[in-house]
Each structure stands twice: as structure tokens, then as C-alpha cells.
Design a protein around this nucleic acid. Structure first.
Ligand SMILES: [Mn+2]
Ligand SMILES: [Mn+2]
Ligand SMILES: [Mn+2]
Ligand SMILES: [Mn+2]
Lengths: 219, 219
DNA sequence: CAATAAATTTAGACAAATCTAAAAATGATT
DNA sequence: AATCATTTTTAGATTTGTCTAAATTTATTG
């Protein structure tokens, strides 16, 4: 099955909107994510259904079928491998790589993907801590624990970011926090949920909002 | 100036057909190279002229102007850098990389190109020995000497291949000849121009046809 | 449950890149 | 110079991905 760049991006959109439970997806949700019009989405859904990559019933909604989901995951795999390449090998910042990976993910060559993965040491997580599916489409598991769930006195390791927007990434980078860093949770302020912590011997306070966007594991 | 993948490929085609003298190009020649129909080419030439990337007069021919030529060279630079990456870093054979580079060359990010070049050690020549233009579009010079011009007794270094078809590349690779190897020219057969040489202590004969496709420098 | 709002699809149009067939221009040849 | 062959362009379609506006279906709510 050889899809156009546009078709590939629709599959990815469906994958993200649908979530891991494989929910039915609203046409408008796809339109919003693709930054296009609902009418355009309807056309594409009909096309993807004809290619047997999705289920779709007019007015009811759409969802990826097995083949479509696997295709979407392969694109996602390439996206995250390229992001890893850009950060680990070319020295890009984690806030710069998404748009470039958005282009690179569509390069078609299974051998390239396989060799790239191997060149990178078959990484399990990308620069934002997001899981990289393997060739068969299986995702490594990541604890879905966020910093706002931590308790006083705990030492935790930063595992990823929930919000990969350049704004949040830049903010975190400005604080000097990187994946793998350990944070010592001194106290959680009952009033606003903000967290006082020590990082690299430096003490500072993180808002509750920021802490919900940091994936952690208990050290 | 943001061109489509198709437009970029037409610019590259014009660059190659036109040669270093910047000759006028026939519409049919472009059609042949692009594996498309002359009528399609005419449409595209009108479009590229409107974008002020080429000179074009109906029935007379077309050629890149300064801006078009620079654009084509930037694509070519990316193509050759990616080929170098694929061979040097991912371990691909030189006969496998062209089609993948044909896709990668269209990825748009000046910073990526610059970092890739630097990651590769700012190479001057690609895996086939073809010159890689720099950011300003200048090509490193390569001696245009081919093996068929060598004389008996000479020791020469293989610098590149004139014909990069998988057939020729595979043939040369099968003989064990790589860029940078030295060849000792024992004798040139007057009858058919074939060349007897020593390579890695092994003696063998190369046809005149093959020898015209190997760029060399005198050791 | 009928009216209204929201979501979705249909209809009709457009730009890009392509094609085939026909017309026109150019060039070569008596 | 008239004819023939070749090259190139024009005319008219097609496919893909998009849009706006209108129609339709579904959901909400008084
Ligand atoms: Mn990304
Ligand atoms: Mn994409
Ligand atoms: Mn190539
Ligand atoms: Mn190309």
C-alpha cells in the first residue's frame, strides 16, 4: 500500500485523536487537527475507507482498522527516530525537531528506517520521552506518572514531557531540566499545588500546571 | 521562494541537461529526463518562467537563470550530502543510495543541511566521487581525467565514477574497487583499448568501456 | 416533540500536475 | 520555394487535494 503524504498525515491524525482505546473519531476533530475543512475530511475519509484503512459510516464517525493503525504507527516510528537523530547526532534542541521530522517521516525506505534505528542504538524513547514503536508496531511501556502526583521527600527521574509545544520545551530547557535528570521533591504547596524541588543542587518552585506536564519515574 | 517537489525536480533536470556552459535546453530533452510528456514540460516551463527561475521562449528553448541555477544547486547539495550520510554513517552500498537521496533532497531546512554537512565533516565529494557544492553554490574542482586516458606504467588513484548506474557500480564493487584505491596500469591493449592493471596485488583486465567511466588522478 | 443548533455531507468549483490528440511552428530536403 | 518530418505548443480531460455554500442528518432543549 503506497499512500500519498496527505493520506499518511490523515492516518496519523486519526491515530492520535482516537487514543489507545480506538474510539470513533468526529469529522470535525480531524478537520481541526489537520487544519482543514470538514468537507475536505469527508472526501478523504471516503477515500481511506475505499482503500480499506479505516472504518467509516457517514454521520457516525471513523476509526483506523488494523492495517490503517499499523501504517500510522510506522509513520510515527519514523517521526520519532528522526527526532532522535536530529537531537542525538546533529545537536538540535528538542524544541526544533518536530517540523523537520514531519517531513522526514514520509521518506519511504524500510531499509533506511531499520538502519537509522540501529545507528541510533534502537532507542525506545524519543527526545521528548515519547515511546518509539518497534517494526511490528509494539510500543515500549512508559509509566504514565506525572510530577504533580509526587509526594514530599521523594526523588524522581524526569522521563518525558506530556506537552511538547516549543513554549513548554523552551521553558523546561531554560530551567536546565533534561530527560534523565533527578528532582528532589521538597514540598508540595497545598494552596496552589506548586512544587518546591531541588535540581542540580539548586532549589526552585514549579507551578502545578508545569508539573502535570512532566512524566517521571520514582528513583 | 518555496517550490513544490515537482518544480524542484524540473530545476535539477534543467541543470543537468544544460551542462556547465548553460546551454539552451530542448523541451523534448526535459520530457525524456523527467519521464513525462513534452506537453507537460511546456506547462511547467511557463510556470517556472513566471516564477522567474528560468529563461524560456516558446519554440526556442529554456535555461536556468541565476536564481534557478542556485536553487538547483542547493537541491543537488542536499542530494549528495544525504548520499554521503547513507554510505558513511548507515553503511549503505553506493548503488543503493540514489533513490533514497532523491526523496531526502526535498526536505526543507537550511539548518538541517548545514548541520548534516558538518556532521559528515563537510565532505567535498559524495560516495560516487561527485563534487558537493558549498552553501554558496561553488563546486570543488575535480580532475576530469578518466582511466582510459592513462598510460602504461602509471599508478593512479580512483576518484569517482562517471556512470553511477547500479549496473556499473555493482560491477566495480564486485571487482573490489573503491574510491581512493590505487591502480597500477601495466599495459593498454592497442587492439581494443582494454587495460591490464594491478589492484590490491591482483592482476586483471578492464574493458575500455569500463575505463572511460572511472575518474582518476595521477598518484 | 417540535424547534433550533451543531455536525456532517453534498454540490460545485479551483489549482497543480499530468495525459492524449490535434494544431502550429521550425527545420531539412528535394 | 514547396513539401515533408520533427519539435513544440495548444486544447481539452483527468486525478488529487482543497475550498465555499447549501442541504441534510443528528443532537439538544424548551
Ligand atoms: Mn514530533
Ligand atoms: Mn507529516
Ligand atoms: Mn544520486
Ligand atoms: Mn528529487
Amino acid at each position: 500500500m503506497n499512500l500519498s503524504l496527505t493520506e499518511e498525515n490523515y492516518l496519523k491524525a486519526l491515530f492520535f485523536i482516537s487514543g489507545s482505546e480506538g474510539n470513533l473519531v468526529n469529522t470535525n476533530a480531524v478537520a481541526e487537527r489537520m487544519e482543514t475543512k470538514p468537507a475536505t475530511v469527508t472526501d478523504m475519509l471516503r477515500k481511506l475507507k475505499k482503500k480499506e484503512l479505516i472504518e467509516y459510516q457517514p454521520y457516525k464517525g471513523s476509526r483506523l482498522n488494523k492495517e490503517g493503525r499499523l501504517y500510522a504507527i510506522q509513520i510515527l516510528r519514523k517521526h520519532r527516530l528522526w527526532e532522535t537523530f536530529l537531537v542525538d547526532k546533529l545537536g538540535f534542541g528538542w524544541e526544533e525537531v518536530h517540523d523537520i521530522a514531519e517531513q522526514l517521516e514520509h521518506v519511504r525506505s524500510p531499509k533506511l528506517t531499520q538502519r537509522l534505528a540501529s545507528f541510533l542504538g534502537n532507542p525506545q524513547f524519543d527526545p521528548h520521552g515519547d515511546p518509539i514503536p518497534d517494526e511490528s508496531g509494539a510500543f515500549p511501556i512508559r509509566e504514565e506518572l506525572t510530577l504533580d502526583r509526587s509526594v514530599e521527600g521523594e526523588v524522581v527521574i524526569v522521563k518525558g514531557v506530556k506537552d511538547s509545544s516549543p513554549e513548554f520545551l523552551n521553558y523546561i530547557a531554560k530551567l536546565g531540566i533534561k530527560l534523565g535528570d533527578s528532582l528532589n521533591v521538597l514540598s508540595v504547596e497545598p494552596f496552589d499545588g506548586s512544587i518546591l524541588l531541588v535540581h542540580n543542587r539548586q532549589e526552585f518552585r514549579l507551578s502545578a500546571q508545569a508539573s502535570t506536564n512532566l512524566y517521571i519515574s520514582r528513583a
